[in-house]
Design a protein around this nucleic acid. Sequence first.
DNA 1: AAGGTGCCCAACCGCGTCCTT
DNA 2: AAAGGACGCGGTTGGGCACCT
Length: 205
Amino acid sequence: MEQKTEGKSYMKRGLWKPEEDMILKSYVETHGEGNWADISRRSGLKRGGKSCRLRWKNYLRPNIKRGSMSPQEQDLIIRMHKLLGNRWSLIAGRLPGRTDNEVKNYWNTHLNKKSSSRKQNAPESIGATNFTDKPLMSTEVRRSHGEEGEREGNGIVRNTWMEEETNSFDYDVRIGSPLPLISHYPDNTLVFDPCFAFTDFFPLL
DNA sequence: AAGGTGCCCAACCGCGTCCTT
DNA sequence: AAAGGACGCGGTTGGGCACCT
């Protein structure tokens, strides 16, 4: 199936074939990320730049972790979603190897139901206070704190503020008191450390 | 075995923001 | 300062698959 998109030529759509993956992968590995419109033109793929970018980011990029989410990852997603709302890229940034698309899909198919049933079962818990409806961080705050990350010389974007070490307590602005949300796991693989959010969201406090 | 249904997830779309000229 | 292109994000769609009848 081909369709005219991006006002240029007839672009292929739908699922990627292994041949296309190979072409895109080798091209990006040779020439680097960025300039996606150029990549789609020069690589010979009849795909839009957006499509190439998405395919690379969500599937072909090195260190992509595939397969089911571990309980630790599930827990982290739930907690982060409570804090940030549908800020999938931020949540994914805390899950090494996971993409925003994957986290979003996982939430919508698995955790959304789980979370809403949890609310029903525990009406007096924190989860019942409608946290998931609104993100706690405005667009302005996000931008001013470099949500998009820093562009390095090669065009690769890196989230620096997400990597900062912070204290170990959570804070909910609607309640106004710290919440003990830290989790320790025996293997230390994932420890929820939500306070980056507090310090980065409210640096003036 | 065949058709219907629901679920999962890859991919697309629209929009906002950033960057360059 | 304005315009246009590039990029990133979140919401939505639809194809493929598994399960059920």
